[in-house]
Design a protein around this nucleic acid. Structure first.
Lengths: 234, 234
DNA sequence: ACTTTGCGTCAATGCTGTTGACATAAGGCG
DNA sequence: CGCCTTATGTCAACAGCATTGACGCAAAGT
């Protein structure tokens, strides 16, 4: 393959503005750009400008923008999972994984919204998969089920975290308007046509809140109920 | 607001090629374009070409491409839930809702991927919430819990559907590369450092599949286990 | 028939990612 | 130390993108 992009350049040369480029510096700057000016602020040209280098220099470090995006995603994963070690209680450990992923995504909401559904196939992601699958195995699930259930778990966590991140990434006004909608627009529905909504009218504001914890709790409860260790006890 | 885009033009004039434009014709053609030539085929220019009009004519009907995508998304929701009526079996009904949402999203993945995280607070959405909350109430959950659990359910369904749609919406090459990652990059890991991955190595390709059904099943199982009707029987 | 004005068309602007040629300096080697 | 290779930053160019403002035609209202 002649077109591969070297991950670790050996002959780094300062740019016109004196900066020494590196994969880490580039992803850092990209995350800062996205955080400050929104996801649409991330373009090769703007990133080059922010780094003080020619835009095309980035192609010495990443094959294309998708490759760059995956690197950013992997970095978020790495930051979130930094220092995590699975404990003996597999349910509690999975819950902590979920919590960490969510925190990592919320720390970079706009970048997370772009990268949540990608497979980075890089170091940090691989380590996270190892930890999650290991927990499923330690719960007593046989390999095929362990993989399937881990996937269901991590997809729920990732997609819920992305959902939360997307909401946080919305402009302030729009987010508040969405929140108000539940306590305003939905209060005035016709009782005849919408009996259920009328019954729960006082609780509807909860629809604007995050369901992350509830969903994770439900999923972990279902997993615990299905775990072989549990069945063996009866 | 002086820049609003009229939804129902009053003086339609045939284009150079003789077509009478309309919002419906435009969304139809957009969905057809996506369906026939892949998600990346949707651009203002190509859409104009497919319609036989100048690209800029579309701006008489939609403020911008985002507005166009929302119109498409609204249509997808309506189509997906068309004809749905909750039945007596609340678990089966919720499962059908989930299935319908997913099918609707997957039929038009790119539009769905972009619009999934928004609150439309329009007619179709309100009807869906009414149906879902009604099912939770019929399961015996008191109002506060019914709302919380419905939210956890629908967020899981929506975000999983969006996850699936996002993968399908990826350009072909990227999607295949993501899929290949599980059977290539993940096969070669060091057995010492990654014992769990090594154990389940043969099953890893499942990580590229959708976890939608598994996640919905787990969630519905947890809901059924928590339903008051069930507890009353013991 | 005349006026108003909605709407399709044209041309132009400033973005975007990506590539190939080029030059220059880093680092190995004598 | 000085030469050579080549990695790497720079430059210029291309095709495609969304969007906009001016313009003129034709449809609708009177």
């Amino acid at each position: 393959m002649s077109t591969r992009a070297p991950r670790q350049p050996q002959r780094r040369r300062p740019t016109r503005s004196g900066v020494l480029l590196s994969e880490e510096l580039i992803t850092d700057t990209a995350l800062r750009l996205i955080g400050e000016h929104g996801p649409e602020a991330l373009s090769v040209r703007r990133l080059g400008a922010a780094l003080g280098c020619d835009p095309s220099a980035l192609y010495r470090y990443f094959r294309n923008t998708d490759d760059l995006l995956l690197a950013i995603a992997d970095r978020i994963i790495g930051d979130a999972m930094d220092g995590f070690t699975p404990g003996p209680d597999w349910v509690a450990s999975l819950r902590e994984m979920a919590s960490r992923v969510r925190a990592g995504y919320l720390a970079h909401p706009r970048a997370a919204a772009m990268a949540a559904y990608r497979v980075t196939r890089r170091e940090n992601e691989i380590r996270a998969v190892e930890a999650g699958v290991g927990l499923m195995l330690s719960a007593g699930f046989p390999p095929p089920e362990a993989v399937r259930l881990y996937l269901a778990f991590i997809d729920t966590v990732l997609s819920h975290a992305a959902l939360d991140a997307s909401c946080v990434a919305l402009p302030r006004q729009q987010r508040e308007a969405d929140q108000r909608a539940w306590t305003e627009a939905y209060q005035a529905v016709d009782p005849e046509a919408f009996p259920a909504l009328t019954t729960v009218r006082g609780e509807l504001r909860r629809l604007g809140e995050s369901s992350f914890d509830e969903a994770v709790d439900l999923l972990l409860a279902a997993l615990a109920a299905r775990a072989p260790g549990k069945a063996a006890r009866t």
